Simulated scan of single mutants.
Amino acid sequence: MPRPQCARCQRPQRHCLCPLIPSLPSKTSVLILQHSSESRHALNTARLAVLGLLNAELRIGEQFDKDLPMDDGVESYLLFPGEDALSLEELVERPEPRRLIVPDGTWRKARKVLHLNPRLASLPRVALPEGLVSRYRLRKAPMPGALSTIEAIVVALNSLEGGIRFEALLKPFEALIDAQIEAMGSDVFQRNHLPLKG
């Protein structure tokens, strides 16, 4: 028999994250384009980001070009590294209103989404600063500075809108990770997820 699940955060009822999810306004709108395979993942941080942000939307699939909001007077920027990517400091100088479009999935799947959506891939890109460290203790980062979707959004919004108020988005994220570690047991976590000591 399936465990009762919270309809909002889609976590098991006894691990419901809703009391920790904030309700944060932002001048910057956030559109997350989630690869369809990621939507079924237990550690789905994109859903948490959208639940915690009043000015955010989640779309799921692989083909997005036909439905991209391009002609609504809001400048869209792709939060994804690239050769000519702007820094967040440079983006602050650009006129508002602005929209961050955030691909969500593994790096391979995110690149596939860009390959399948030339209009999306042609948007100006914005990159996070170097040297960031993820709090995502359950996934090995594919490269230095790689963050989960929710962490990347928090860094970007804090930089664009000043202060650290978007850190509140990370409370349910950290509770989610703690619950997963508890479920797997500390022995399994230490064996599979902690770095080996040299």
Rank of each mutant, 00 (worst) to 15 (best):
Q13K: 11
L48N: 00
T106L: 09
S26L: 12
G145D: 08
Q63T: 10
L114V: 10
E57Q: 15
L196W: 05
S122Q: 13
L51H: 04
E90S: 15
V102H: 10
H15R: 15
V30R: 00
A46C: 09
S122R: 15
M1F: 10
C6G: 04
P2M: 05
S134E: 04
L79T: 01
S148N: 04
V50L: 07
S76Q: 11
Q5S: 13
D67L: 04
L114T: 11
S159W: 05
I153C: 02
A110P: 09
R8H: 14
E174S: 12
G73S: 09
E130V: 10
P172W: 06
A141K: 04
P95F: 08
A127M: 01
A56H: 08
V30I: 13
E130S: 14
S148I: 02
T149V: 06
I153N: 02
T28N: 11
P142R: 13
T106R: 02
T45R: 07
N158R: 02
I101Q: 06
F80N: 06
K66N: 12
H115C: 05
D72H: 11
L120T: 11
P69G: 05
G73I: 10
K197R: 15
P22H: 04
L176M: 14
L17D: 03
N117G: 09
S37P: 00
L48K: 01
C6M: 03
N192I: 09
A7M: 13
V126W: 02
P25M: 11
C16T: 13
